[in-house]
């Protein structure tokens, strides 16, 4: 688990960054994210992973919208259950495409600025500058109900920036934007990053964000599988993780054995019926080493019978090829 525990940049002091300390989040039985240890420094950081990999979960955890099942998160030293201090620093543009009813874009931004304790004049001024920043123009005085998807995305972005936060968290901010708006948004994120803020964005396509990211965090199935500067991550991706399905009569026993391997990212029981495990699903960085070790384990434990071994699907491999742009002729 070497990569999952290493800080993205060792020079960041804990109080200046966003720190995840052994964080797990379960939605009932469903895993959101597991064993996340991260320190996110200033600049633009991208969370990258396919749908369901845990990007939104990490962002909701950073902002206290959900609470970790285990572990602790601090943002610039502030615990996430202290909204009064947290949101003086943090702005979060969520993935929820919804608004309070019956307002214009400008009213929407101004109303919530009043919650920040700003007076009417100051709120109006800040709202105007946020509207200018996302180039919404006079559409700001129309009713939100009549906005196009792109306009809704921009007004939400403006709202999350309106109080001038130091930490800006944006969930899939480039999703569904036309090329022109996309280029404008990217320029905006870069200028925010250059101003010395934390800018954290998520995307399910790496090549969409790699050019602008100072660092990338790769997620898969709720685990951080790689992180660091984009060149480092690309290096790690060469030995991208694979999923292997092993059918056997004693999956729990096998799990204990294989978890000793350093390359193993995770192992999970496959249940044929509730409580009845019929096999093991493992994710490893090194398939060859895993097969070798599996042979050794089977040989040393006579009562363990392995009935099948096969790559679970091309999921992990193809996803990472896709993510890093291999096979698409993108940058390498």
């Amino acid at each position: 688990m070497s990569t999952a525990t290493a800080a993205v940049s060792p020079t960041v002091s804990a109080s200046a960054g966003i720190v995840f300390d052994n964080v797990c989040k379960f939605y009932g039985e469903v895993l959101g994210v597991n064993r996340v240890n991260l320190t996110i420094p200033k600049g633009i950081t991208s969370l990258v992973g396919p749908n369901g990999s845990g990007k939104t979960t990490l962002m909701n955890l950073m902002t206290g919208l959900i609470r970790p099942s285990r572990g602790r998160i601090t943002v610039r030293g502030i615990p996430t259950d202290d909204p009064e201090r947290l949101f003086a620093q943090v702005g979060y543009c969520t993935q929820f495409d919804s608004f309070p009813r019956g307002m214009t874009g400008r009213e929407f931004i101004t109303a919530y600025l009043r919650l920040f304790g700003r007076g009417a004049d100051e709120a109006a001024r800040l709202a105007q500058s946020a509207i200018d920043r996302v180039k919404l123009g006079e559409a700001a005085d129309r009713r939100l109900a009549g906005y196009s998807k792109g306009m809704r995305q921009r007004i939400r972005l403006a709202q999350s920036l309106s109080h001038d936060p130091n930490v800006i968290i944006l969930d899939e901010p480039l999703n569904g934007l036309d090329p022109l708006v996309r280029a404008e948004s990217i320029a905006l994120f870069q200028s925010l990053g250059a101003e010395g803020r934390h800018v954290i964005l998520s995307s399910h396509v790496l090549h969409e964000v790699d050019a602008i990211s100072d660092q990338v965090i790769m997620l898969s199935h709720g685990y951080v599988v790689a992180e660091g500067k984009i060149q480092e991550v690309r290096g790690e991706m060469r030995e991208h993780p694979v999923l292997i399905r092993v059918g056997c009569n004693q999956p729990r026993r096998l799990a204990i054995e294989v978890l000793r391997q350093p390359q193993l990212l995770r192992a999970e029981l496959i249940e044929s019926a509730p409580g009845v495990a019929s096999g093991l699903l493992v994710m490893t960085r090194d398939a060859d080493a895993f097969y070798l070790d599996l042979n050794r384990i089977v040989a040393s434990i006579p009562e363990l019978e392995v009935t099948s071994v096969a790559p679970a699907d091309d999921d992990a491999g193809s996803v990472y090829d896709y993510l890093v742009g291999r096979g698409q002729g993108a940058q390498s």
């Binding site: 909204p83 009064e84 947290l86 702005g91 929820f96 919804s98 309070p100 009813r101």
Partner: peptide, 18 residues
């Protein structure tokens, strides 16, 4: 009502105690 409208998070993302 705000959970149904999906607009409660705007309150929860503002710097005020719940």
């Amino acid at each position: 009502g705000e959970l149904l409208d999906k607009s409660l998070h705007f309150y929860f993302l503002a710097p005020l105690r719940r």
